[in-house]
């Protein structure tokens, strides 16, 4: 319990408002980034930028609003593990689709 009591000192209202500000800025940035055509860099650059911003926003929410920053290793681990498993699902599914080659099975 003492851990949780310490946590009281970590966040205060100005800090919460600061995080909130970052999230608002992130949202606006996402919108405007999406209106710029970045396909000339490489196809999908827009999506990459959008995802980077989303990840940043998520990190702030998780670390400070959800107090992960002050949480036990196990909680860090479960947060990271879930994204790792998502990555497995994405990567191992996509390794099939991107290597289908041409022909009837390529759809």
């Amino acid at each position: 319990m003492s851990d949780n009591h310490d946590e009281h000192q970590h966040m205060n209202i100005p800090k919460y408002l600061g995080i909130f500000g970052i999230l608002v800025v992130g949202t606006i940035a996402t919108y405007f980034a999406a209106t710029i055509d970045m396909d000339w860099i490489f196809p999908g650059a827009n999506t990459l930028v959008a995802l980077i911003i989303a990840f940043t926003k998520m990190s702030f929410v998780m670390l400070f609003f959800m107090h992960v920053y002050w949480s036990s290793k196990l909680i860090w681990l479960s947060a990271i593990a879930s994204f790792f498993w998502l990555a497995i699902m994405f990567a191992f599914t996509m390794q099939d689709y991107v290597t289908r080659g041409t022909g009837i099975f390529s759809v």
Binding site: T27, T30, Y31, A34, T35, I36, D37, M38, D39, N46, T47, A50, L51, I53, A54
Partner: peptide, 10 residues
């Protein structure tokens, strides 16, 4: 939000 609403914007 970005994945559904903004993906075709550019």
């Amino acid at each position: 939000f970005p994945l559904l609403y903004l993906l075709g914007r550019h």
